[in-house]
């Protein structure tokens, strides 16, 4: 993800701290799924709605990749999930021996169906205020 930056304040507290405004302008997505090229999303205009449109396109494209990802998942895992889900839902008994174990297995198997998207240094939280389309940032 790339943003344009406008620094509003410099050197607050230390030399490596600055405050400003970040506006999202583009996103790129590459995958190691077979025959997939990287995809680039560019904001159409400065209109704040266009930033949302770009993120929406990114999310919907990610779900398309998810479909492909699931296609490559071994059928045994999908079958096991369905089987366990059916067993846990359809049982007339409220409690039975091994129910917790079966939930544990189901949770483990569902991890295989989660589609991970990785960013680099994307998780850091800096204190910020969010208003309209502007993101106040403070980066150290």
């Amino acid at each position: 993800m790339e943003c344009t930056e406008r620094v509003s304040e410099k050197e607050i507290g230390s030399k490596t701290t600055q405050q400003g405004v970040q506006n999202i302008v583009s996103m790129a997505l590459a995958s190691n799924l077979p025959n997939q090229k990287s995809t680039f999303f560019l904001r159409k205009s400065s209109d704040p709605r266009m930033a949302f449109e770009m993120v929406k396109d990114f999310v919907l494209h990610s779900f398309k990749l998810y479909e492909l990802f699931i296609d490559y998942l071994p059928v045994e895992i999908k079958r096991a999930i369905k089987k366990l889900e059916y067993k846990l839902k359809s049982s007339k008994k409220k409690f039975w021996k091994g129910k917790t174990k079966e939930y544990q297995h189901l949770r483990f198997l569902r991890k295989f169906t989660t589609f991970p998207l990785y960013g680099f240094n994307s998780s850091k939280v800096y204190f910020f205020k969010y208003s309209n389309s502007l993101n106040m940032f403070s980066m150290t």
Binding site: S62, L117, G119, S123
Partner: peptide, 28 residues
């Protein structure tokens, strides 16, 4: 899911088919 000073895990779930996308940071 926030932990300490970072967003540990952000998930987007499509409820109809329980499709989950998980946004993570390589630095983790």
């Amino acid at each position: 899911l926030k932990r300490g000073t970072s967003y540990f895990n952000v998930t987007i779930e499509r409820k109809a088919d329980k499709a989950i996308i998980s946004l993570r940071d390589v630095l983790q």
